[in-house]
Every structure is written in structure tokens, then in C-alpha cells.
Simulated scan of single mutants.
Amino acid sequence: MRAAITLCAAAALAATLGTASGAPSKPRPVQQESKDPVLVDCFWRPEVRPAEFMLACGDGNSRLDLLEWSRWDGRAAVAKGVNWVNDCKPYCAAGRFHSYPVTVRLDDPKPWKKNPDLRQYGKISLTYTDGRPEGFPKVVTYPLWS
């Protein structure tokens, strides 16, 4: 009986540890009293210094990962990371994802329409530092949703 209980406890612990180590990292929670802007994700959640960020919310064909932030303040935020982009060849469902090192810059903070007590960055720029997706310029800038 004791052996069975010990085995079950070990299995439960292993399952918990396996799940925790395989789970994506969570962004730091946003505090209302923060004066720095937030980055709003695809699910309309405000984030501060996220480790990953989905650029293509509709189809998931472009995302940022391994983000390491060197700046996050009232005017701008800067990080280095990787942009994973689907080549969509011969079509997106059959395409392959390729990684491209990037520098990410967030600018244009303004009140968030959903929660005017928070300011959100309104623009994101990616600078490709070593290779880039076919047809992309070295620097791309996108407006962020609000």
C-alpha cells in the first residue's frame, strides 16, 4: 500500500513538473498604478515586457519570441528577439516557419480605448538584423490594435 501511494505521488509530481516546464512563460502582471504604457495582445490583455507576442492574430503566421527588453518607459520600449514567420509555401497551412533575429521597438503611447486609465503603445517596428522574410524590407512598422 505504501509503495502504491509513493508511486502515485511521484507520478503526480512528475506530471506537474513536466507541465510547468513545458508551459510558455507568462508576462509580468500589469499594475494599474504603472505610468508606463502597455502592449495589448490578441486577447485584449495588457502586458508589460512580454517574452512573446503574436503579430498575426488572425492566422498566427507571424509571432515574436524570446523577447528580452532593454527599455520600457513612458515614451518607447526596445527588445531583441526572434520573429517566427510562416513562408506560406505552397500555401500557409502547408508552409514552414522560419526564424529571423529582430530588434523590436514600441512607440506612440496613447490612452487605451478599452481602459483609458492605461496607456498603450500604438506602433511596433521590427528591424531584421540577420536575414529577413522574402519580400520584407529591413525595417517594417505596423500600427498596433486598440
Rank of each mutant, 00 (worst) to 15 (best):
S70F: 03
G81P: 01
Q120Y: 08
C92E: 00
A23Q: 15
M54F: 11
K114P: 03
Q31P: 03
P101V: 12
D117W: 07
T141P: 04
K26M: 09
C92Q: 02
K113W: 07
R105K: 10
K113L: 09
P101I: 07
A11Y: 06
V38N: 00
A9I: 10
A12D: 08
E33Y: 15
C57D: 14
C8R: 12
R2S: 13
A56R: 14
W112P: 10
Q32G: 04
W84R: 00
V104E: 01
E52H: 09
W72S: 01
R28M: 08
D130S: 10
D130M: 07
P24N: 08
G22S: 15
S70H: 03
P101C: 09
Y100M: 01
V102I: 03
S25C: 06
V30H: 03
K35E: 06
T103V: 07
Y91N: 13
L7F: 11
P133K: 00
G81Y: 00
D36T: 07
P109I: 01
Q32I: 09
D36P: 00
I5S: 12
K35A: 05
R119Y: 03
Q32C: 06
E47M: 10
S34T: 14
R119Q: 12
S146E: 14
G135F: 01
T103H: 02
D117P: 01
L13F: 12
T19F: 13
R96M: 07
G60M: 03
Y91R: 14
Q32P: 05
A12H: 10
D73N: 11
V139T: 15
S62Y: 03
A15M: 11
C57W: 13
V40F: 04
S34H: 13
T16H: 13
Q31T: 14
A15Y: 01
P90M: 10
I5V: 15
A51K: 06
N115S: 13
T16K: 09
P143L: 06
L55K: 03
P29R: 02
L13D: 13
N83L: 04
L144E: 06
A3H: 12
